[in-house]
Amino acid sequence: MASQATLTPGETSPAAPPAAPSTARRGPAGSLLRLFVSRREATIFVVAVAIIVYFAARTSEFYSYANIVTIVQYMAPIAVIGVGEVFLLTLGEIDLSAGQIFLVSPWIVVWLQQAGLPIGWAITVSLLCCLAIGAINGLITVLLNVPSFVTTLGTYFSLLGLVLIVSNDAQADMPGTTGTFGQIFGISSWSEIGWALLIVVALHIVLKRTRFGMHVTATGGNYLGAAEAGIPVRRVKVWSFMILAFGAGFIGLLDSIRIQSLDPASPGTTVMFSAVSAAVIGGTSLLGGRGTIIGATIGAIVLGVLEDGFNLIGVSANEFTLVTGLVILVAMAINVQLSRVGARMRT
């Protein structure tokens, strides 16, 4: 429908090749293709169903109650941090320190308790610290014009070092979290996933249904245009860093309350990379402007099921790591192809 000559230079959209024919495909195959193009989550959804069916067929243990609890507890932090990363990826940014914030928040609680603060206060202050770390990430990125990749790499190492120094390299127990409070915040089997789902739904609504979410998309999709329209683009970025940091710190608390012990040497990169992977295989573009919370959540399910399923059928963790890598590559390739098809279908 559009004249091809209208593609202007400097355009941010993935431009179709100039002579691309218009491919208005018909029939069931065409509408299926259109579904996959317009709903990026569709691909990862099919993948998720496929691997769940596969593992369920391979071993009956897979859908036992205990195993499902294992899966959801594994995926909860990935989902929460993953949907937080969706905000940043949509803005064209990334936070490499999120996994370390996830680990540092229970340490802060431990230190404050040792200093004599009651648990409630320790947790509150710890969450405020997480917000502050997010604010620092954001402010350095927008005020000093440092790429967030670099900013958060710095924060990552700083936090890792801080934990090693203050903990004196010794493990610690997560203290004083018993009773109903402990049950709600981590100990109950369904507590972590429950909170995770709450956060996921809340952030989905924020991204798709509120002014702030629309400004996130606008800022990531067309930074100059959004700024020209008067959107406070830098504030939008700082808030997004803070949302992710808060989510990561909160789910970190729940996770440590469940596990009850803290290891200063464990790096936060594992959960961070899993979270970014979940976001990316879920269909969020690294180039900004396009993010899907639902996709990231299904991405987290895929990673959780893969890890657990391989465990059950006796494949080692090493092979799991290799498979995760291949899944990411395949998912990315499919997504890039789909956006190319999408660009062609539109012209």
């Binding site: 202007t8 400097g10 629309m214 245009g225 959004a226 329209a229 959107i231 396009r290």
Partner: peptide, 20 residues
């Protein structure tokens, strides 16, 4: 025209950009 709109937002969202 090549600067003003957010490619990923819909027509009506662009019309109301920052005046939602």
């Amino acid at each position: 025209h090549d600067l003003a709109l957010v490619p990923q937002l819909s027509v009506y969202q662009n019309l109301f950009l920052n005046r939602e």
